[in-house]
Design a protein around this nucleic acid. Structure first.
Lengths: 232, 232
DNA sequence: GTCGGCAGTTGAACACGTTCAAGAAGGGCG
DNA sequence: CGCCCTTCTTGAACGTGTTCAACTGCCGAC
């Protein structure tokens, strides 16, 4: 028991031994309070008190309040993967797979919309380890990109050979765009985000299909070159 | 004495109440300190002290530290407009005008890259009045969209009639995307952002041109319908 | 059995953004 | 001049995230 194979954070948390239990207690308490009261309204003192530990103890396990958000990310990513599984098993058309996985992501996040939105404030800061582009989130990010890789590999779609290796990351980027929209989406139940997915997926689907056309080959290459240049 | 009745504009000062002077002093001090030390490292106490006023006085003029960012935002927008002027007078090709205006925007922001990046964290929060999509920033936003309207109206480009009214806002959205990239751009002098502009503008240019083609008309309409649906 | 080391734990203390009740500074009016 | 009202200014006080020196309890070494 208490085997922790994960390489969760590099920030000097060996966390092999006794305190693992405390760590989980604090994390779960924080998640609960975030959901109940929202992020800003949940104080570190409240988390500590509800968990029955001292404030400083929370900081022993989590470098900052923001790091607790990262925990939420990781959990969401795992839940997203699980929610996408049935879709990946059922569908084989590229469009249906992509739409299904995108919807699954929003499904997972929806219960947390009210407070998750404020997270993205921190996530948008480039210097923050919470940025989806940061080295610290490279674990969850790679897992997410891999998920979109499965969208592609399991599908019947024929994709331009040059585009194919780039596509999973591009789809993940599109997913980030969907989330950005979702965060700002004030429509009841975030129905507009659903419309965005349903509207954008056919376009992406068509675009991916067109990428193989001889006439569009130069454009495809031009776009891919640009993207390769811009990647960090 | 010799005060004009009031409210006439811009002769010497905005002529409103006595504290206008203090307001500007605080604002300018804050901008200077932001540039010198960065946003997080500049405390409200430091701003007040350097400006020679009490802390509470700063809060009389600016509702929060974040509101000082909005001041920066407004100043940048005005500077962007001014920097774009020569381009708008010189160029008449759509691509050249768009590239020029985008570069002008980055030109204006470049000296503040180090600290401007961190304030986008606040801007990304949907609930924040600083969000570029918020009602509170609708003034600067409208001005910015208007700027991209001028990019279009002054150009020789022929644009699909249905696309034309939407295009300024779409170009502004693209500009927001450029800024998002710029914020995360760690390349020296943010040269990659320049490459992004130079690479993306021809694509946008071509896309806008293609929008009039009969074959692509359905796609154009489909995209525009989606956008209209998604607008808040 | 005792002792040393170290993961784990504590809570007071610090710096920060923000608030607020109180006061000062003007200016119009009798 | 004296009065009043609005505008402006003050700084102590509050609640927050975060730090840190001190403490506790456990476990292996001798």
């Amino acid at each position: 028991m208490t085997e922790q194979p994960a390489q969760t954070t590099t920030a000097g948390d060996p966390a092999t031994a006794r305190g693992e239990q405390t760590r989980q207690l604090i994390r779960d308490t924080a998640m609960r309070l975030f959901r109940e009261r929202g992020y800003a309204q949940t104080t570190m003192r409240a988390i500590a008190q509800e968990a029955g530990v001292a404030v400083g103890n929370a900081y022993y396990y989590f470098g900052s309040k923001d790091h607790l958000i990262q925990e939420f990310y990781a959990q969401s990513q795992v839940a997203h993967r699980a929610a996408a599984q049935p879709v990946l098993e059922r569908e084989d058309a590229f469009g249906a797979r992509l739409a299904g996985v995108l919807h699954a992501g929003i499904d997972v996040l929806t219960p947390s919309h009210a407070f998750a939105a404020t997270f993205f404030k921190t996530a948008a800061e480039p210097t923050s380890p919470l940025s989806p582009f940061s080295a610290e989130s490279s674990g969850p990010r790679q897992a997410a990109i891999e998920l979109f890789g499965e969208v592609l590999t399991g599908s019947t779609a024929k994709v331009d050979a040059e585009l194919r290796p780039q596509l999973p990351e591009l789809l993940w980027l599109a997913y980030m765009g969907v989330i950005l929209y979702w965060v700002h989406d004030r429509s009841p139940g975030q129905t507009k985000t659903r419309q965005l997915i349903d509207g954008a997926v056919p376009l992406i689907d068509r675009l991916v299909g067109l990428s193989r056309l001889r006439v569009l080959r130069p454009v495809t290459r031009q776009v891919l070159d640009l993207i390769r240049t811009l990647r960090h």
